[in-house]
Nucleic acid binder design. Structure first.
Lengths: 195, 195
DNA sequence: TTTTTTGTTGATTGACGAGTCAATAAACTT
DNA sequence: AAGTTTATTGACTCGTCAATCAACAAAAAA
């Protein structure tokens, strides 16, 4: 029953299934068959659309980063003040879509993947640069020359909160994570003011 | 040429080789043969001393955590003031032994392992609890009721700095990492003072 | 209508790797 | 000296899995 124009549908299903399976098993040791099955097709078809398992992983990474990037842009465009910009980025980082179990679990594994696969490494680098530069736009008016250091630290803190979320049982506590990240910023800003 | 009393020597060699191989390849997809070869023995012997590959991983994790714990204790026992206690913990976290490439790369992979292997999860939990409680001893006199939140954030920040180090090329910048972590603390303390 | 393109899968291949086993040897015990 | 324990490995088993292939079906193009 070959309906035409299946390619994008199949690919999207595979990408989502990849994220789910990686998040579910908590590792990159997922078989193409598992992914394909969850996406409702044979493993052969998965190989037909994506050349290799690695390609599926990379597509899944791009997908997660695309969602993240879109949310950040969306939140940024309603921000009026520099501080609101920073808050917007933090809020997006811990939004329901990004800070959900599967996504966070997958994210950790993509980090591992980046150690071996140059493509994956580049993707993570892109994420880091964008985050950093987005933060700097908001932070420079507030913290001047200290902005760089604060952005660097905040980036690491956000990643660390993701990392820790992976092992925390139960639903992600988005509010707590966001408040920790925001606390970092306000503490630095207030400390700088009274220096 | 069987000399007796080989067991502890072989086991230690295997544990170290495991860490090196995981750090080198950047993943848990290391074969027992690779590990055994690096440790200078046959894979059969590795299986003889450790029942399974998983056991080797767990032993390697314990080894890393043992070193970390020892350094923290060592640094703590010369700390006089609460702030010095916190500084000691941060310094130990980014000491040459702990913040070296292999160890950091291995650490990330152990985190992944913890998602699937309950034993590994327990070990990470132990690390987190100890870190948290060590920090609290120093932070409570300085920050009172805010100590908990600061400890939680600092823990996440340290983990995040590890995470980022994994993908950074070149030698680890221990000073920069330590100063970021310490900056987090001092900013919070100063902000609290002027609140 | 024939041909080509697109969708789809069961079966197969080929490689790799964890764990086992049998065998060998040196050291300790009695 | 005979027996036991410890050290050690090459060869083997057995399972798994990524990737390929041959074949079939339906839509579109010719």
């Amino acid at each position: 029953m070959p309906k035409l124009g299946m390619e994008p549908i199949r690919k999207e299903a595979l990408v989502k299934a990849t994220i789910v399976e990686i998040g579910r098993t908590g590792s990159l040791d997922v078989t193409v068959s598992q992914i394909a099955k969850r996406a409702g097709m044979s493993s052969a078809l998965a190989h037909h659309y994506f050349g290799s398992k690695e390609d599926m992983f990379l597509a899944a990474m791009r997908h997660i980063m695309t969602i993240y990037g879109a949310e950040v842009r969306g939140a940024l465009c309603v921000a009026q003040t520099p501080l609101e910009r920073v808050e917007a980025i933090v809020a997006a980082s811990f939004s329901p879509a990004n800070f959900r179990r599967e996504a966070v679990g997958a994210w950790l594994n993509f980090w591992v993947l980046a150690q071996t696969v140059p493509q994956a490494k580049r993707l993570v680098a892109v994420y880091q640069r964008r985050l950093r530069s987005n933060l700097l736009v908001g932070l420079r008016p507030l913290a001047g020359p200290q902005a760089e250091a604060i952005a660097e630290g905040l980036g690491a803190l956000i990643d660390g909160l993701y990392l820790r979320q992976v092992l925390r049982p139960g639903a992600p506590d988005r509010a707590a994570a966001a408040s920790t990240a925001l606390g970092y910023v306000t503490a630095h800003l207030r400390a700088a003011q009274h220096a």
